[in-house]
Structures are given as C-alpha cells and as structure tokens.
Computed example of a mutant assay.
Amino acid sequence: MDFTFTAIDLPADHPALVQFMLSNEFPFHINARPTRTDLERKISEGAFGGPDHASFWVQSESEGRLGLVILEDLLDDAPLFDLRLSSAARGRGLGAPILQALTAEVVQRWPNVNRFEGQTREDNIAMRKTFLRAGFIKEAHYREGWPVTGAHPLASVAYAILRRDWETGETTTFIWEDLTI
C-alpha cells in the first residue's frame, strides 16, 4: 500500500484536525483524549505548524485518511515525530510501512536531517515493534520518563534511524554497555 503525506493547512483544516483528535482515543500518548480547549491552545501555540513544526494527514489511495503525523524540531538535524492513526487504522500492520514512507518523506524533504527520532512508552509493544520493523533502533530507555495520568510513570523508550541507514538499508549499531567500572 502506498502512503502519502498531505500538509495540514491551517486554518482551512482546523475543523477536520479538531474532529480527528476528538473522535479518536490515543491510549499510549501522554494526553490520550485531548479536549477541545487543549487542542485550540496547541493550535494557537503553533504545535501543528510553523518554522519548527509541520503536520500532515497520513493517507492511502485506497482508504483515504488514516491519521496524522506531527513533526517537531525541524530546524534541528534530528526531528521527532508524533504519529496518530485513527482507531480504525490501528492493529492492521500499517505502522511499519507508514513509518518507512514517513522516513523517506522526511529525509528527502529536509536535507539537513541526519537522524529521525521517535519515542513511545515501554508498554506500547506494537509501536516498539513498528520502530524495529521500519529500521529504527532503540537508543534510550528513560526510566519513569513517561507521565501516566493517575498512575506511576512508565519508561519512555526512544528509537531513531540515521540518514545513512535509510540510504544504505543497513543499520548502524552500537554497544549498549560500553563502559564498566
């Protein structure tokens, strides 16, 4: 399946963006069910667009809109992404091919990008496997780094892919425990 990323045009896409965010739950995100007030504040603060952020609808030719992706820190050489698939698009094995297509989009569109990063919480096994299937490797495990409403914080797990890994199809590895005492 081919995926495309269509820029979210604010203010024209404002109603669709708010509707998408309010009509889906995102159980592994810090704010699983953002309120309209939360969204309006984030939109007005530039979280979905601006010089350092960009947002795109994730679409397929056969199924239409599947979700959205928000890119952050685009002025750096290591932007982060926030992928939010609709409830109907989850659990169907679309994550890895979407992430591979997104990686291609980012490294081709932004020549300053050397590495592309994402994070999830430790119990989001589906997303962690998606990262691995898409060629990303685990680079960090932040103990108790992910706030969870009404519960003890979980670990935040960070993954990344290097531009050269994407270009060559080979994964650059490293030694986790490279220092002993």
Rank of each mutant, 00 (worst) to 15 (best):
S55M: 02
Q59Y: 00
V69H: 04
G95W: 01
R65W: 00
P51I: 03
S55Y: 01
P51Q: 12
V69C: 04
R84E: 05
P51T: 05
L75Y: 01
L85T: 14
L80E: 10
V58Y: 02
G91K: 08
A78C: 09
A88Q: 09
W57G: 08
L74H: 10
R84Y: 11
Q59E: 14
L99T: 15
D82K: 05
L75H: 04
E63G: 06
V58M: 02
A54I: 05
Q59W: 04
E72T: 11
F56K: 02
Q59T: 04
G91M: 12
E61L: 06
S55E: 06
S60T: 03
I70E: 06
D82T: 14
S60C: 03
S60K: 01
G64E: 02
L80T: 13
S87R: 08
V58I: 10
L85H: 02
D73H: 12
L71M: 15
R90D: 12
L68K: 04
W57C: 07
E72L: 10
V69K: 09
D82R: 06
G67K: 12
E72F: 00
A89Q: 12
D76S: 15
L74D: 06
P97I: 11
L99S: 10
V58F: 04
S55H: 00
S86V: 10
L85Y: 07
D82L: 07
V58H: 00
A96I: 11
G91R: 13
L94N: 12
R90T: 15
H53C: 13
E61F: 04
G91D: 10
R84L: 14
R90Q: 15
D77L: 03
H53I: 04
D77I: 03
S55G: 02
L75A: 13
S86Y: 09
E72D: 13
D82W: 03
L83S: 06
S87Q: 14
R90H: 14
L66C: 07
E72P: 03
H53T: 14
I70N: 11
V69S: 07
